[in-house]
């Protein structure tokens, strides 16, 4: 299956972001429909579809650090119109923030009510174990049942993780699963257990150390779309353990087709998107903290709370 790309044309936009959600939905309607079209066949026999966006934290969607809820809403609208399935949008409460809180701040309720689409916290759902083969090992993956019983369409943003590689669809699914393995193997295991229908990469706004209005959507099989995302962020596919294990040996080249005659120049887009990292954590470097504590002990000064040794 080829990967399809579509440009999101916003000729009347001032600045890199359209604030009005209705306007964004209107801008997205045509490109989302045309880029999904070649992939809808895979959903023809399903009665339930779950969209899994990157809504891990309420960062502003204009930063590219999360999926734009309007992209998710536009996708839900097409799926509701073109399939018989019920459509839900799912995320999961974690130890940082409740999903309904993050989704609420991001504006999901007001977007999804337009399309009669449910918002689901997978932390409240029962889970099932699946054993899958990952890197020549059998790995037991605990996955929310909904993701096993419905057709899953993952909608990642185009951004790196804090460790550097592309966040992508597989790592987005990996955050919803649990295994005894590390995060990379969990991402692969989750993808193999869930068998998502396809991935919709929201590169309308991308983050690569700085945000950029990339105005692009990429749809296709999840490893290939993640590979394109990694390339757009200037990451080596070989250096990414998730891509290394999931891209087939014959996939040194990925066929990319422009949807609806759009002419999307991915090479030019690659040049526009910065290839940087997430900002450094707030935690001061341990060496600086140690030096400050030493200084404070010598000088009789107080140690700022941020530089205290955590226990």
């Amino acid at each position: 299956m080829s990967v399809h790309v579509a440009a999101v044309d916003a000729p009347e936009r001032r600045g890199g972001w359209t604030t009005n959600t209705d306007r964004r939905l209107a801008i997205l309607e045509s490109p989302v429909r045309s880029v999904l079209e070649p992939h809808l066949e895979s959903l023809s026999n399903t009665d339930r579809i779950t969209l899994v966006p990157d809504a891990h934290y309420p960062f502003h969607p204009s930063t590219g650090m999360v999926t734009d809820p309007a992209v998710v809403g536009s996708t839900a609208a097409v799926l509701r119109a073109r399939t018989e399935a019920d459509v839900a949008v799912a995320g999961m409460t974690d130890d940082r923030i409740a999903f309904d809180r993050a989704a609420g701040y991001l504006g999901y309720p007001s977007v999804l009510e337009r399309f009669d689409t449910e918002l689901v916290d997978l932390a409240d759902e029962s889970r099932r174990d699946r054993v899958v083969s990952v890197a020549d090992q059998q790995l037991s993956v605990s996955v929310p049942e909904r993701l096993l019983e419905s057709a899953v369409v993952v909608v990642p943003s185009l951004r790196p993780t804090r460790d550097g590689p592309v966040a992508g669809g597989m790592r987005t699914l990996g955050r919803l699963a649990a295994t005894v393995a590390d995060a990379d193997l969990t991402a692969i295991g989750a993808t193999r257990a869930i068998e998502p229908a396809f991935s919709v990469l929201d590169a309308t706004a991308a983050y690569g150390g700085d945000p950029i209005a990339a105005d692009t959507l990429v749809v296709g099989p999840i490893p290939q779309v993640d590979a394109i995302g990694a390339s757009l962020l200037g990451r080596s596919l070989e250096d990414d353990p998730v891509l290394r294990h999931t891209l087939g040996a014959d996939e040194s080249a990925i066929t990319v087709e422009s949807a609806a005659g759009d002419d999307v120049d991915l090479t030019a887009l690659r040049r526009r998107i910065p290839d940087g990292e997430l900002p450094p954590p707030d935690d001061t470097h341990p060496a600086v903290s140690t030096a400050y504590r030493l200084y404070a002990a010598v000088a009789g000064d107080a140690v700022p709370p941020q530089l205290e040794q955590r226990r």
Partner: peptide
């Protein structure tokens, strides 16, 4: 809300 990476 902070900025990425948001740990807390």
């Amino acid at each position: 809300l902070g900025r990425p990476p948001a740990d807390d």
